[in-house]
Structures are given as structure tokens and as C-alpha cells.
């Protein structure tokens, strides 16, 4: 009798469980001296705010200036651009996505002035169009590479080799805001 009841209720209890939300959350790029080295570490580190829906991925990427002194780079004064994720796909323990409008970063905070950014104006803009990420891992750690792709209309450009990156999950609610430049200060 109890087995019958258990067999009936178990599927109901398990309904909704699955890996459909894996990768959702906040991920921070690991420091260069603690994880797989990334040449980009010399300039920027990335924070991923990801939402996964089945095999689709979306969210935003916040860019920070890498602090060479060893202090925490992921602080508001060091924010240096915000990007929407585009074309995100999740398959098993692998995910890949690219940055929307990668050459025109947005502000991570509303009403931000360029002078408020933790990076120089020259650093804020980038010539790296079509930056892509390909990562693989589990619910705690992901490693892979990021590629700086060709700008739009230059499909025949020679892509640089991918750069290894690693991310670790941090506790927090993913951010969902990425602000346009207001043109307050040019």
C-alpha cells in the first residue's frame, strides 16, 4: 500500500526538478594568479550575470579593470563597461555566447559619467568586435576561452587565438540592467 502511494506521489514530487537552470547566477573571472592565466587579465576581468532557460542562455557581462595590486577587482569604482549576452546556448555542461554590440559598451550604472568609470576613455571603447565565450564546467567552476572576433563587415579578418579564462560562481542575484550612454560627457 505504502509503495503504491509512494510510486504515485514520487513523480509529482520530482516534477520540475532538472538541470534547466544550471549556470544561472553570477560568475566572476578568477584572478590570473589563481586560475588559468588570461592575457586579458592584464587589462580587464569579466563578471557574468547569466540566466539559463532550457538550452537558451541570456544575461549581461560587466567588465572591470583588473587590479594588479591584488585587491578585489570586482568593485563599482573599477567598472568599465556592460554588455548584453546574445545568442547564448547551453548544452549539457557547456555554454557559449557572444557579446551584443561588443565595440560599444554600455554603462553598468545609470547616469554614469565617463569620469566615474574605473577605466580611461581610451580603454572604455574597444576594437574587439564579436567577443565570444565558450565555457565548460559544473555548477561551481567553469573554464574555457574567449575569442575576440571580427568586427561586423570584416568577416575575412584574421581572428586572434582564443584566450583561456576561468569563472567561479559567487553568491548574488544576477543584474539585469545595462545602461546606454547618456551623452552627458563626451
Amino acid at each position: 500500500m505504502h509503495r503504491l502511494l509512494f510510486a504515485t506521489l514520487l513523480p509529482l514530487a520530482l516534477a520540475g526538478c532538472g538541470s534547466e537552470r544550471e549556470f544561472s547566477g553570477v560568475w566572476r573571472q578568477m584572478p590570473c594568479d589563481e586560475g588559468p592565466a588570461s592575457p586579458d587579465c592584464s587589462d580587464f576581468v569579466y563578471e557574468l550575470h547569466i540566466g539559463r532557460y532550457g538550452d537558451q542562455l541570456t544575461g549581461i557581462v560587466v567588465r572591470y579593470v583588473y587590479d594588479r595590486s591584488g585587491l578585489d577587482s570586482f568593485q563599482r569604482p573599477k567598472e568599465c563597461g556592460c554588455f548584453f549576452i546574445e545568442g547564448g546556448v547551453a548544452e549539457g555542461d557547456e555554454m557559449r555566447f557572444r557579446l551584443h554590440d561588443a565595440t560599444t559598451p554600455r554603462y553598468p550604472q545609470p547616469d554614469t559619467l565617463d569620469s566615474d568609470l574605473g577605466c580611461q576613455t581610451g580603454q572604455f571603447s574597444t576594437t574587439c568586435a564579436g567577443r565570444r565565450f565558450r565555457l565548460e564546467g559544473d555548477d561551481e567552476l567553469m573554464a574555457g576561452e574567449t575569442v575576440c572576433g571580427c568586427p561586423a563587415g570584416q568577416a575575412d579578418c584574421e581572428e586572434p587565438p582564443g584566450l583561456p579564462v576561468a569563472f567561479e560562481r559567487v553568491v548574488g542575484q544576477p543584474r539585469t540592467e545595462c545602461y546606454e550612454r547618456r551623452g552627458i560627457e563626451q
Binding site: G51, Y53, L57, T58, D101, T176, C178, Y179, E180
Partner: peptide, 17 residues
């Protein structure tokens, strides 16, 4: 559309997304 799921109505999201 995953972006429509992730971002709220008040979030600034490009229409293309």
C-alpha cells in the same frame, strides 16, 4: 525569447534582443 524572460519590463533592453 530568453532575453524577454531574463530582463524585466523596466530594464533597458535593445529591441533586437
Amino acid at each position: 525569447n530568453p532575453a524577454c524572460k531574463f530582463f524585466g519590463e523596466d530594464d533597458e533592453v535593445p529591441d533586437v534582443l
